[in-house]
């Protein structure tokens, strides 16, 4: 989707946070120098294009129990089958194929650390592949989006 200038400014400015007040869109419109109707129209166009993930609170995953980044080195011919097996877990919310010896990367989130270890043990037993288990130690930047620098 090609972004008009107002929509690009809207995203750059408000993907990190919106005003928390009774009429947030009016305040945002005033800041961006447009009308509330124009601002709503931008959001609706984004949503129709599937380019708006959502508007609303982003909850802190790390407080919600435990999570870890895990990876497996899967032989190419088994990738589909193992990936499907992993994606079936409701505890997996991201699962990416990546070009590397460790070619399957997924994020596990659950109520506690033990719960995640059980899933990793189960996966190891079922697939015969030893997962990398890389829990976060320190966060230097967390899911704040990124600047849409140099948009047309």
């Amino acid at each position: 989707m090609e972004l008009d200038e107002l929509t690009a400014r809207l995203i750059d400015r408000y993907q990190h946070g919106m005003p928390l007040c009774a009429e947030p869109y009016l305040e945002m419109a005033n800041t961006l120098g447009c009308s509330e109707k124009e601002l709503m129209a931008c959001l609706q166009r984004l949503e129709l294009a599937g380019a708006l993930s959502r508007v609303g609170p982003v909850f802190d995953h790390s407080r919600a129990g435990a999570s870890t980044l895990a990876a497996l080195a899967v032989p190419a011919e088994r990738l589909e089958q193992v990936a499907a097996r992993i994606s079936r877990y409701p505890e997996v919310n991201h699962n990416y194929a990546r070009e590397h010896h460790y070619n399957l990367w997924f994020v596990l989130t659950g109520p506690n650390r033990r719960h995640l270890e059980q899933i990793l043990e189960e996966l190891e037993k079922d697939t015969g592949l030893v997962p990398l288990d890389l829990p976060m130690l320190t966060s230097y930047r967390i899911d704040l989006g990124f600047a849409l620098g140099g948009h047309p």
Binding site: M1, L3, L10, I11, Y14, Q15, H16, G17, M18, L20, C21, A22, L43, L46, A49, G50, A51, L52, S53, R54, V55, G56, P57, V58, F59, D60, R63, I142, D143, L144, G145, F146, L148
Partner: peptide, 27 residues
Amino acid sequence: TLDLLKRLQAEGAIRRIAAVPNHYRLG
């Protein structure tokens, strides 16, 4: 409602309230 949102944000349960784009769909 606003007070509740502010409290959840102050406690850290809400990280931010934002317009979250789907960057993949934005190219």
